[in-house]
């Protein structure tokens, strides 16, 4: 059963690599409302870094474009993160999700989606060539004894 969102935030930024750190810091600060452990915060930061880096490196290879990140907190103590771009898109999303697959040359390891899948509970990837890509990730935060 899908629970109601109890808080949300939305940020747009240009696809500059200097915004990778900004995006994961925003995500970590927002998710902090769910009282996550340090490991949970680090997992969210890592997954966001991968999604945003993909948008910066692959969606806009020769130009600077817009990247949007939306975060929602749900009453079941989970956080949903949606990273969207309006770049070149992905022709074969199944191939893109394979470990070690990359079109980014030696600078990229091709492990971005593997890391996102490992560190988040759910991952959905939608893309249309020429129109852009949307990555939706969700992570449940454990409720701790004596918590909020």
């Amino acid at each position: 059963m899908r629970t109601k969102a109890c808080n949300y935030v939305s940020v747009d930024f240009p696809s500059r690599s200097s915004n990778e750190g900004f995006a994961r810091t925003v995500a970590a600060c927002f998710a902090a409302q769910l009282d996550p452990t340090l490991e949970e915060v680090n997992d969210i930061k890592t997954a966001v870094s991968e999604a945003v880096t993909n948008a910066i490196v692959h969606a806009y290879p020769d130009t600077i474009g817009k990247v949007s990140m939306k975060l929602r907190l749900y009453e079941d103590n989970s956080v949903e993160i949606v990273v969207r771009d309006w770049g070149v898109g992905i022709a074969d999303v199944e191939q893109a999700r394979q470990p070690m697959y990359t079109t980014g040359g030696e600078e990229r390891a091709g492990m971005g989606f593997t890391i996102m899948e490992s560190f988040m509970d759910k991952l959905r990837l939608r893309s249309t060539p020429g129109k852009g890509t949307t990555v939706t990730m969700r992570r449940c935060i454990s409720r701790r004894a004596g918590g909020r």
């Binding site: 750190g21 994961r24 680090n42 930061k45 890592t46 870094s49 991968e50 880096t53 030696e106 600078e107 990229r108 390891a109 492990m111 971005g112 593997t114 890391i115």
Partner: peptide, 13 residues
């Protein structure tokens, strides 16, 4: 203080 899969590419290279 933080590393994503970019660090994997650095070490493999």
């Amino acid at each position: 203080t933080f590393m994503d899969s970019s660090g994997i590419a650095v070490l493999l290279r």
